[in-house]
């Protein structure tokens, strides 16, 4: 599992200790990865100051050949799907 957000590596490290996620957690301060996937939020930017933008919360499954198998995206950041949605997708596609 890989996570991407705009936090700095230091901030991610703090969160990693707190939540003990066994994931590769990447820092995308300049939104390079977000833009490579085309996931920058073009709506109102409600992020912290000094940040260009934020990704739209998105989960996706990539097959072993690098093909995108499944995408789940939140249209509204106050609403996002719970872990069960990802579990169903994992069972279905992998």
């Amino acid at each position: 599992m890989v996570t991407v957000c705009t936090d700095t590596p230091e901030e991610i490290q703090k969160g990693y200790r707190k939540h003990e996620l066994g994931a590769v957690m990447l820092s995308d301060r300049d939104l390079a990865v977000t833009d490579a996937f085309g996931l920058r939020n073009l709506g109102f930017h409600s992020g912290p100051f000094g940040l260009e933008g934020l990704p739209v919360p998105t989960s996706m499954l990539i097959g072993s050949d690098g093909t995108v198998l499944w995408v789940d995206q939140a249209e509204n950041y106050q609403r996002r799907n719970g872990p069960e949605v990802v579990e169903v997708a994992l069972q279905r596609y992998l």
């Binding site: 990447l26 995308d28 990865v33 996937f37 073009l42 709506g43 990539i62 690098g66 995108v68 509204n76």
Partner: peptide
């Protein structure tokens, strides 16, 4: 906050069936 929480992505955003783009990024270390 409810009125500003809607978000949009470009139509060029990643879609099922496409190949994942290559990327490099700093990890937590």
């Amino acid at each position: 906050s409810m009125t500003i929480s809607r978000q949009e992505v470009a139509t060029t955003g990643i879609q099922v069936g496409q190949t994942m783009p290559e990327f490099k990024a700093l990890n937590r270390k």
